[in-house]
Amino acid sequence: MPDNFQRVSPLADIAIQGRFGADHGAPGVTLSVRHPVLIATVIARKGKAKALADALKSWRGATVQWAGAEQYFLLDKPFDEVRKKLEGLASCSDQSHGRVIIRIEGPKVRQVLCKGTPVDLHESGFEIGKSALTQMAHVGVHLTRVGRDAFELSVFRGFSESFWEWLTEKAEEFGYQVI
């Protein structure tokens, strides 16, 4: 059910806008927090993997990110709508409040991310739209390439502050801005 309460991001007091770290001219990366965001975990019911994939492919306005075997994060649709639309195809769980999405982009984005993930993010094997489940600084991260030099990092809400601290420290040497 839609509600009108003020959603407060766990990074509200942490992700302060500004320019930080080394100053070599243009910032190496730009960070921002996507909030509020709508996220649902959808997992195919038995034997419905293909039907679910097809339904997701044709759903306009939904952002679909692979999140494991027969499993996706579905963004930008209200949960009630997700559940109704995928009834019988998938088990759905609302995660809109449970995950925090940090967007990181800029010329040094791979140099920052390689300090955390063993996943090879070279564009030859990790195209735009591709997602990976990995771990960075002991925190589980769902990572999606959203542009040539842009990624979204989705982490459990409870780890978001720790993860933000780690990520910004790793970006310091290139200079970063928060918008």
């Binding site: 038995k46 034997g47 769980s93 459990f156």
Partner: peptide, 10 residues
Amino acid sequence: DVQYVSVTEQ
């Protein structure tokens, strides 16, 4: 036919 996911943080 069972699906499960952690919703601890939600």
